[in-house]
């Protein structure tokens, strides 16, 4: 069951690569949050009540509700609904992402001895999701999409941490969650500021700081 969910999780990244509507990206974040919750639910066999509560809070409340709601608000405030001018056409984005995801599945199929510590399908898909997110960050042109891709990367890292059949101390988990949440919050606030100061939310506009030709 969880293998099917993980594959759907990987496929959401393809949709992310192909679409240019920001609202669709936000909806994918909701879907990813729910998928991660289900993966935790089916994947973890014996855990104490505290861990289960924490994971539910992290995936269902924070990843699937709070962050998407916050981004939704920013999209509405900034009136930026589309990310059209990617560096390369969306079709090629889709091709590149598919190739990476396929490579991820290939990794999961390998059985070399060093990989016995981990669950291969988790590992392959999560690495693919992290790499696709990083590539999309370099390709897409709106800073809001960059924030969304940062969150999908964090989701990939979350899946990677699930692939290791060991838990971090609760204090570390809490700290990680808090940090990621605040980072998204600060990035969101900065997006709003940039929207006020600059004309638009293109990455290319953030180029005032240079080494030569500096003028103040």
């Amino acid at each position: 069951m969880e293998n099917a969910l993980i594959i759907i999780f990987g496929l959401t990244m393809l949709y992310m690569a192909a679409t240019s509507r920001l609202m669709a990206h936000v909806r994918i974040l909701v879907l990813q949050g729910i998928l991660l919750f289900l993966i935790c639910y089916f994947g973890i066999e014996h855990a104490d009540i505290l861990t289960i509560l924490f994971l539910t809070f992290e995936t269902l409340i924070v990843k699937a509700i709070v962050i998407p709601m916050f981004l939704n608000k920013i999209v509405k405030q900034t009136h930026e609904y589309r990310d059209m001018e990617a560096n390369i056409p969306h079709f090629y984005c889709l091709v590149i992402s598919s190739v990476i995801l396929f490579a991820g599945f290939l990794i999961s199929d390998f059985h070399f001895p060093a990989i016995k510590m981990i669950n291969p399908i988790y590992f392959g898909v999560s690495i693919a999701v992290i790499i696709i997110s990083l590539i999309l960050i370099t390709i897409k042109h709106k800073i809001l999409t960059n924030v969304i891709e940062f969150i999908t990367m964090e989701n990939g890292i979350f899946l990677l941490s699930l692939s290791v059949a060991k838990e971090m101390p609760v204090i570390v988990n809490l700290g990680v969650l808090l940090d990621v949440f605040i980072a998204v919050f600060i990035l969101g606030l900065l997006v709003n500021r940039i929207n006020k100061e600059f004309d638009g939310l293109e990455v290319t506009q953030l180029s005032d700081l240079k080494d030569c030709e500096y003028d103040d």
Binding site: I157, A183, I186
Partner: peptide
């Protein structure tokens, strides 16, 4: 604003990758 944006964004991604490193260390 530009400096703050670049700072938070680049460092957050860098540190997220460091977390991948920590997970690999636990493996």
């Amino acid at each position: 604003i530009e400096a703050a944006w670049k700072y938070v964004y680049i460092c957050s991604i860098g540190i997220a990758l460091a977390f991948v490193g920590i997970i690999l260390l636990t493996i």
